[in-house]
Design a protein around this nucleic acid. Structure first.
Length: 177
DNA sequence: AACATGTACAACCGCACTGCG
DNA sequence: TCGCAGTGCGGTTGTACATGT
């Protein structure tokens, strides 16, 4: 990564120095305004037409993970956490697929949650995070704790609108359900 | 108060897939 | 059929902030 400009993926004729790193408020505004007026379309075109010195990929990521109006921010509710555990036990690291069942949550957010909290727990227990042993620990320790939390504080439970049918009754990993 | 360490999350990278000419 | 550009996904890294000593 010694040279950020080593590879250009679009229009070599345009020697535009692409910006990287954290987005500024101004860039956010440019991107948001452009998309609200013109819809998403091709990301490289969006980047260019919005007047951003970013590549399309970067714009897409920023929009999907941060700027999109329906993004839910803040802590994951116990029910959402339970759902993630459940879905992960079915599909593994298919973050985007899991995210489809948590409206307003992004694959990036779920992935981060898994890495920082779930895998941390696994490390503390000294077990492989994708092993059978780990899922046993999740079933016998973590899931009951989350259910307890939900019962103690029902107001913070979150009801997934389009997936009630297949998830609300299936909060335990498939081997139990 | 200052420093060290841990945590959370935004952003980047590489690869695979898809659609189009 | 092939090559290319665009896109999506999962893994990884960087860094700001929180917490502990």
């Amino acid at each position: 990564m010694e040279n950020s400009m080593k590879k250009k993926t679009f229009t070599e004729s345009e020697e535009v120095e692409l910006r990287r790193g954290p987005w500024t408020l101004e860039e956010d505004t440019l991107l948001t305004n452009y998309i609200l007026q013109n819809s998403e379309g091709r990301w490289n075109v969006v980047a260019k037409c919005a007047g951003l010195k970013r590549n399309g990929k970067s714009c897409r990521l920023r929009w999907l993970n941060y700027l999109k109006p329906d993004i839910r921010r803040g802590n994951l509710s116990p029910q959402e956490q339970l759902l993630i555990l459940d879905l992960h036990s079915k599909w593994g690291n298919r973050w985007s697929k899991i995210a489809q069942y948590l409206p307003g949550r992004t694959d990036n957010e779920i992935k981060n949650y898994w890495r920082t909290r779930v895998q941390k727990q696994a490390r503390q227990l000294n077990i492989e995070s994708n092993s059978d042993k780990f899922f046993d620990a999740v079933r016998s320790f973590w899931v009951p704790r989350l259910i307890e939390k939900m019962e103690q504080n029902p107001s913070n439970t979150y009801c997934c609108p389009q997936n009630n049918n297949n998830n609300n009754n299936s909060l335990l990993p498939p081997s139990q359900s």
